[in-house]
Design a protein around this nucleic acid. Structure first.
Lengths: 349, 349
DNA sequence: CAAGTGAACTGTATCGTTACAGATTTTCAG
DNA sequence: CTGAAAATCTGTAACGATACAGTTCACTTG
């Protein structure tokens, strides 16, 4: 077990001459101080490359520190300075459709690996509790920075963190006139391009499986879609019964109903890979065929859909990359870079 | 920002009569001590329900603590006691096939939410570095417990943590004669049942897309498969060119080759949903059809495969449940429960 | 009524680190 | 050679919590 403390005070040591630190334990500043004959403060400052420490001393300290494998005790630093070296990824336990979470986590981890930051998952159960985990982090100082997703145009979390001047990055943009770090996928571009391709294939009546209306990227995707409809002279078919947050079963059922109706579309734009699966199932349930009765363009997180339904036109969203960008953004914010420089948008591959 | 400290010492306070804690800041024991007129120690012990504190006092302290929203400072506790209240999930950044990570994380989070534990992701990049993150946690005391996956029969990580008597749980079993907490899916049962079903469908020549040989569940799945082959009087077709760790493209290519060869199988057992997709692609590339030329049974993490290829017989592995079990297991271990009681095996749904 | 007992409470030191205010030595201008 | 400024280095206190060793004080008990 072990590490930071022992949970038991050893016999009180004489106050003046500090006993030599046990060499068995994990090295601390005291260990290095003892080995170099310097004071603890000096060692601390030497490792920080402070200007009032001699060059040769710094070298010596660094050498010994490396030799004994010194790593600052996180609890000590945190207690003294308030710096946690933690980035918190705030996750909804509900949005468990098709695990987009994994690649984000991997992307973030990749970037954090080269830093002293640890990644902590801070979950919340229901959409209405989204503010709670953020508040928790702010109130308890549990992290130095936060990454959130499922961003809304007027996002209370963003507002709160801006107000407290707390470093964060959002997956998705907001629309409140507040400048903050974000990474987003160009959903507008995606939807526009999707409509273009369908139109080019001769499709006339196009529908969209869209994100839930309260999320920002609903607007983006919707805008791109609507522009496409206008620019390419095709017709939009409303599909508002369900959105990407519905279960696959619900999407399938709703789409099946739609495809049986009179005004069934002949072109489909799907905002997610998982949703596409449900759409395809619904489609085929009514006996229609891809590339024949309808065409479909889908945003996908990986290319597995192409393996099973090569007829679907896929546009790839690199979520792992999003994770990397988000991690860079928060860290940049913590380092004090201006938010303007920490915004990025990525295109479909 | 903030929380734990201010990174700046306020003007030195008089030593004897401790200044009243600022009411603006986050409450500490000192705050409660001041409000109740008790000593800091008393407050601490009252909140711990120590036997030497009066019942009425405890009640008073609890009330005030709740009132001001007291939450123990994690850094303080950690520094003093070594207890981190952190569970570390050690993850390979490579095993990024089809994100099984998400549901595990969600499952763990669900359980930890009701405890003071936080979930920290500790990644490692390459298989050969698997020991490094575990060593890191042990050496730095970064967590109170660890969860690992991709367990091997002789697993160096398990050995190390057992030796140091460090609480952990493994996703998958080991085979070293060491008793430790684990959760595992019954891969043997799965493979046996899979063969049974294929045999029942009249399939005679059956092959297996298996896990990489160094992982424990390779043996389990293999054993179940081999037993099935024996018990149901069918023939096993070797497929050793690739395993579940290969890329989908590689699996597909290898399988295509196999299906073109003389001894092509007519029944397939697939150890993963992602692998199945590659197999199906390979299969169809050579013009063969499911339910016709071949039948296939696949272990899947969710039922989306059934949506696109209902012909495939699927057996569900509930990975989220695995996450929950693993979290319970580590916590149980930390609480001192015997390892024997913290082992679980789950069947396909 | 002195001494002992137990209940209830508290002060001190400490975990590892860093901010701050010295302390000591060296170096030089005058 | 003197005094002051640099250049280096160091002790102390504090962050918040807890283990330990008391301290108080009301009661028993003989």
């Amino acid at each position: 077990m072990e590490g930071d403390g022992r949970g038991m005070d050893e016999k009180t040591k004489s106050r003046q001459a500090p006993a030599p630190p046990s060499l068995q334990e994990r090295p601390t500043l005291k260990t290095i101080a003892f080995m170099t004959g310097l004071g603890i403060t000096t060692v601390s400052r030497a490792l920080k490359d402070a200007p009032d420490i001699g060059a040769e001393t710094k070298e010596r300290v660094r050498l010994v520190a490396k030799q004994v494998g010194y790593q600052p005790n996180r609890a000590g630093v945190r207690l003294r300075t308030g710096k946690t070296n933690v980035i918190s990824l705030v996750l909804s336990l509900e949005e468990e459709v098709m695990g987009l979470t994994s690649p984000i986590v991997v992307g973030i981890s990749e970037v954090l690996a080269a830093t002293p930051y640890h990644l902590v998952i801070t979950p919340y159960r229901f959409a209405k509790d989204a503010l709670a985990p953020v508040r928790y982090v702010l109130d308890t100082g549990a992290a130095d920075g936060v990454i959130i997703s499922r961003t809304e145009p007027k996002d209370a979390r963003v507002e709160l963190m801006m107000e407290r001047n707390f470093p964060f990055a959002t997956h998705g943009r907001t629309d409140m006139g507040l400048v903050h770090p974000y990474h987003d996928f160009d959903n507008q571009g995606f939807a526009y391009e999707a409509v273009r391709r369908l139109a080019k294939l001769g499709r006339k009546r196009i529908t969209l499986l869209q994100p839930p209306p309260h999320l920002t990227f609903h607007r983006h995707m919707r805008n791109g879609f609507d522009e496409g409809i206008r620019d390419f002279g095709v017709e939009a078919v409303a599909f508002n019964a369900v959105d990407l947050d519905n279960s696959l079963a619900e999407i399938r059922a709703a789409f099946e109903t739609m495809m049986r109706s009179d005004g069934a579309p002949d072109g489909i734009v799907s905002g997610s890979g998982a949703g596409s699966i449900a759409l395809i199932a619904g489609l085929e349930a009514v006996g229609k065929k891809l590339n024949q009765d309808v065409d479909m363009v889908s945003k996908v997180p990986s290319d597995f859909l192409s393996w099973l339904r090569p007829e679907v036109i896929t546009m790839n969203e690199d979520i792992r990359h999003a994770g990397r960008e988000l991690a860079r953004a928060v860290i940049g914010r913590i380092a004090g870079l201006p938010a303007e420089e920490l915004q990025s948008l990525s295109q479909a591959l």
